[in-house]
């Protein structure tokens, strides 16, 4: 048996699993969107002409974008410090970041339900110090969804960036310093450009992750802050509008893939190591 044939045979079961149970069902979802009796593209024109659906789409993009910007900023600063502390402390901090990452989305969103609820900790605290005179509802707002999402994605950002920042040779920074660069200049002209590709990878993970999330907007946003994920679920399982649900699903896939493709192109262009 040739090596080539053997290689294909060994990889086949996994390829089949992906093809049969991911490729075909997702393709069938795409195909469903063109099967509307009113014409092949009518479901899309209905989607893009509906004020409600566009509101959900823009809201989801907005929440995902704000979440990404905050997570990148917090994650970058924290990763910068974590990458620089003594190794004992560094392992401790990495453990502290991995722990929430490996804890489930439901548990982590639930924590914010307890904190932000009407009888929650934050309200009680604000009441006790007299900032507010009666509890107000912080839940089911865009802010509550964003806080919980940032909470979900900061650990991912920290862990991605610690790896990236550690990979930047210290010699380069020393070289910049010995050539007279101030720490700020060395950071701006050496460290940051080298971290940009990693930053983009992390940002894409956070953006697509929050754009397609379900549990967090469901728990903390409710009906009022419906996002694409909760909208898809509602269309599919509550109103049983499968053409509509498939359209939402297709829009989600297109946005996700477009983000990944465009941003990986940008990352390649900005990579100073790629020459």
């Amino acid at each position: 048996m040739s090596n080539r044939l053997r290689a294909w045979l060994i990889a086949t079961p996994a390829l089949l699993l992906v093809f049969i149970f991911l490729g075909l069902p997702v393709l069938s979802t795409f195909v469903t969107t063109f099967g509307d009796p009113k014409g092949p593209l009518s479901t899309y024109s209905a989607f893009f002409n509906s004020r409600f659906r566009m509101t959900v789409l823009w809201r989801t993009m907005e929440v995902a974008l704000i979440t990404t910007i905050i997570s990148v900023a917090i994650g970058f600063v924290t990763a910068w410090v974590v990458a620089r502390v003594p190794s004992r402390l560094k392992s401790l901090l990495i453990i502290a970041a991995v722990f929430p990452l490996l804890t489930g989305v439901v548990v982590r969103s639930f924590a914010w339900l307890v904190i932000l609820g009407k009888n929650g900790i934050l309200n009680n605290f604000l009441l006790s110090i007299g900032v507010i005179s009666e509890p107000f509802s912080m839940l089911y707002t865009q802010g509550s969804v964003i806080v919980a999402m940032v909470y979900l994605f900061v650990p991912l950002m920290i862990l991605t960036l610690v790896g990236v920042l550690e990979g930047i040779p210290k010699d380069l920074i020393d070289a910049a310093a010995s050539l007279g660069a101030t720490p700020t200049a060395a950071f701006r002209q050496v460290v940051f450009p080298m971290a940009v590709p990693g930053l983009i990878v992390g940002a894409v993970l956070v953006f697509t992750g929050s754009f397609t999330s379900y549990a967090t907007p469901q728990l903390l946003g409710g009906e009022r802050q419906m996002m694409m994920g909760t909208f898809l679920y509602q269309r599919a399982m509550v109103t049983f509008d499968w053409v509509g649900a498939s359209t939402i699903a297709t829009v989600m896939v297109v946005v996700t893939l477009a983000t990944v493709l465009v941003m990986s192109k940008v990352a390649r262009k900005l990579n100073p190591m790629a020459g």
């Binding site: 991911l22 069902p25 997702v26 069938s28 979802t29 697509t208 754009f211 397609t212 379900y214 994920g229 898809l232 679920y233 599919a236 649900a245 498939s246 699903a249 989600m252 896939v253 996700t256």
Partner: peptide, 8 residues
């Protein structure tokens, strides 16, 4: 997206 896979 996982949710799309789940639905499909």
């Amino acid at each position: 997206p996982e949710i799309v896979l789940g639905f499909s």
